[in-house]
Design a protein around this nucleic acid. Structure first.
Lengths: 331, 331
DNA sequence: AAACGTCGTGATAACGTTTACATTTTGAGC
DNA sequence: GCTCAAAATGTAAACGTTATCACGACGTTT
């Protein structure tokens, strides 16, 4: 509440001097410094980040934005923690928003961030050609994409090797003798979906297993679509003996369907999911998954963003992290 | 990027006029309005929330803060969604931070929020006597507490009837014939912990079951302490036949211990947890829990906050929501 | 002793808004 | 055609910073 003005008055110096003792860089004689610091303390001065941000040119707001589809999804929650921890370490605050995979919300929040003059933004783009993100990047605002990439936009990017993850998961199922493997994937406009599908197909191709189109279903990443699609697959006249489900929520949904149909895992149907869950071990049965290093994705992204903020002209970098098969009892 | 200044120039009017067409309240003749809007569009004008916030007196920043212990805890994630949805509906943006139950982090973020001139703050206080929160409230900043209450501070508050929840949970176990019921509770400085313990004790008292002190253990709300304390309890010469675990993460931890010891649920040991989980149904076995209406807690809190922002002098209100027993197969 | 850096300060102009107040334009009434 | 309120528009201060420039005072160099 107390402003520089008031502090200056009490210390009987100019506001410039007060500002100088605050941004200790400049030199001010120890005597005055002491007086000012006294006044600072007495008034409980707290700088206004708002005023500072208005005044300063880009890159020193110490505020960054993070837009994720849904904080209730443990995968994004983990990314968020990674971003936040790295931000906190650098004394940056975080404006966090949920887009719900809803372009309108995403646009609203992107506008807020521009309006708030954040130093930069981390986000998984809505899809390949996310117009709002392209616009934002065009303004010169530093943007780091996580998880998903964008076809037409050259930004810093932290992603996971989805192809490899899917390939390993499906190979694992094939090694267990499964030949009819159902695929529950996400929206095909999203780069990760396409890569995982590619991994699925390549794993089948490697073993020269014929692809059954009817075993491939696309959902929307939500629990419900896992339930529904698993139900469709298992109702087939020639149902799959194993399921590869391309994200965590859909996996939980699929599991619900399996239980509901009274099927045993892995005897009647095996299942491997993408994304680990903190309680995957406590599930029935403990779930075999492809674990993504989500925390590292977030941390790395924030670090990339900090570097870009410091040096806006550096060449965009892509960091690709490796997923990891975690074999438990569902396969 | 484009400022009022530039728009005004292009439209050949004063900045005041531009400001007027933006805040459509004031009257401006349709002709000029059209010209201005044209200019606005051509320059892709985006108002600066920062400048606006600096200028305006309290309560119109359209920005609120939320500080939670850990966004990776599904309970807090659900609260966060409730807060966010209500905020979005009112076109407020959200500054979201994780305190990690760490007073220093909490203090850092509270300072950021004050510095950012947020309109108000929602948080579960660290404990009963959280000094940082008291300070903040003393500045006149609107604060709404959620989940936990504070002894010395009269703020708006949204809480759950923890006593009743615990009472019902333990009564449920007693009704199943259990007489030795282990309690894994949280830090006793937190109001919810004390209320839940009270509920446990009262339920025992009602049936005139003697309290065994050795069956009561306090943890720190984290998964690990659930694991460890469950292990201690089950290693007792006279181990409990049922466990009441006072939060979600500790419940998952306790479950891990039970599985590890090769015990069957509920035959060897029954378990009921506090807080529901989106995948409680998919757990082994599906978990009986006391469900807290976390989303509603968040939504209600945000709505209370909005009311307070509009009218800072209204009397503080306490909203108390009811928990709900969800009986599944772990008891 | 004149000239000149150097060092510690102070004054002040931004930054992009909103808003109280001043000024100009409009048009109705005579 | 003139007056005068009302309506439309313009001017400028304020919000709390940072940063540029200017200004003394003082010490050093010729």
């Amino acid at each position: 509440m107390a402003s520089l003005q008031e502090v200056a008055q009490r210390a009987k110096v100019s506001i410039a001097t007060v500002s100088r003792v605050l941004n200790k860089s400049d030199k001010v004689v120890p005597e005055t410094r002491a007086v000012v610091q006294q006044a600072l303390r007495e008034l409980g001065y707290r700088p206004s980040r708002v005023a500072r941000r208005l005044r300063m040119k880009d890159g020193r707001a110490h505020l960054v934005g993070l837009i994720i589809p849904d904080i209730q999804n443990p995968f994004y929650a983990e990314i968020a923690r990674g971003v936040e921890d790295a931000a906190y370490a650098a004394e940056y605050a975080l404006l966090l928003c949920n887009s719900d995979e809803n372009p309108e919300k995403e646009r609203f929040y992107l506008n807020v961030m521009l309006s708030e003059s954040v130093d930069g933004i981390v986000l998984p783009p809505f899809d390949d050609t996310d117009a709002a993100v392209i616009e934002i990047a065009a303004t010169g605002m530093p943007v780091v994409c996580v998880d998903r990439s964008m076809a037409k936009l050259k930004t810093d990017l932290v992603e996971v090797d989805n192809h490899r993850g899917a390939f390993e998961a499906v190979s694992h199922l094939l090694a267990k003798g499964h030949e009819h493997i159902g695929l529950i994937e996400g929206r095909s406009q999203v780069s990760t979906s396409r890569e995982r599908r590619r991994g699925y197909l390549d794993a089948l191709a490697e073993r020269e297993i014929a692809v059954r189109k009817d075993l491939m279903r696309a959902g929307d990443f939500k629990q419900d679509s896992g339930r529904i699609l698993a139900n469709e697959l298992l109702a087939l006249r020639k149902p799959p003996t194993a399921l590869f489900v391309c994200n965590n929520l859909m996996t939980v949904g699929a599991l619900a369907t399996i239980h509901q149909r009274g099927l045993r895992v892995p005897q009647d149907v095996a299942i491997v999911g993408f994304d680990d869950l903190p309680w995957a071990e406590a599930l029935d049965p403990p779930l075999t998954v492809v674990r993504q290093p989500a925390y590292e994705v977030g941390r790395e992204a924030m670090e990339l963003l900090l570097k870009r903020i410091m040096d806006p002209d550096r060449a965009p970098v892509t960091v690709r992290l490796l997923p990891e098969m975690v074999t438990r009892s569902s396969t």
